[in-house]
């Protein structure tokens, strides 16, 4: 179900916790699985739960509780824009609107070519860098002016 590399990464996470407390690694393990699969189909969640040794519903609780897991198919690039108050005072909403217009999609939608999915995020702890957005959960992009957004999209399309 998951690659050897992902399993090794999960093993490394499990090793961080005391014996018998491997449930602690479920958040990382699901993140690693999502990184490999693009999103989290239920079979993958069940597999990860079995690998960690917890009931599948316990893994599902976690997967559905934390906002950065994707429980449905998304595009190759997920762009999450912060529109919370501090960001909104400094262009966050405009960045989101710009992205919507540019990609022709609304929040929680994916471009027809399956390249981009747009999400509205909550505070990322980087309000000083507004507008900020997150690419595929792992890369934070700061001071996203229209020009920088154009550049980013162009770079991602090339990938």
């Amino acid at each position: 179900m998951l690659s050897q590399e992902s399993l090794q990464q999960i093993d490394r996470e499990i090793a961080k916790y005391p014996p018998g407390k491997q449930q602690s690694a479920i958040i990382s393990a699901l993140r690693i699985a999502q990184q490999e699969k693009g999103w989290l189909p239920k079979e993958v969640i069940e597999f990860v739960a079995g690998y960690i040794g917890i009931p599948p519903i316990a893994a599902w609780e976690v997967a559905s509780f934390y906002g950065m897991y994707d429980l449905a198919h998304i595009g190759r690039h997920k762009i999450t824009v912060c529109t919370n108050l501090p960001c909104a005072l400094s262009g966050g909403v405009h960045a989101a609107e710009y992205l919507k217009k540019k990609l022709g999609i609304d929040f929680n939608e994916t471009t027809p070519d399956g390249m981009f999915t747009l999400k509205e995020g909550e505070c990322m702890g980087a309000c000083g860098d507004a507008p900020v957005l997150l690419h595929n959960n792992h890369r934070m992009c700061s001071f996203m002016t229209a020009e920088k957004i154009d550049q980013m999209l162009a770079d991602l399309e090339k990938q």
């Binding site: 909104a88 400094s90 262009g91 909403v93 405009h94 609107e97 710009y98 507004a130 507008p131």
Partner: peptide, 13 residues
């Protein structure tokens, strides 16, 4: 209302 458009996205909507 100043929502930062003039600073960050010149061609604001």
């Amino acid at each position: 209302q100043d929502t930062g458009s003039q600073i960050y996205v010149s061609q604001s909507c």
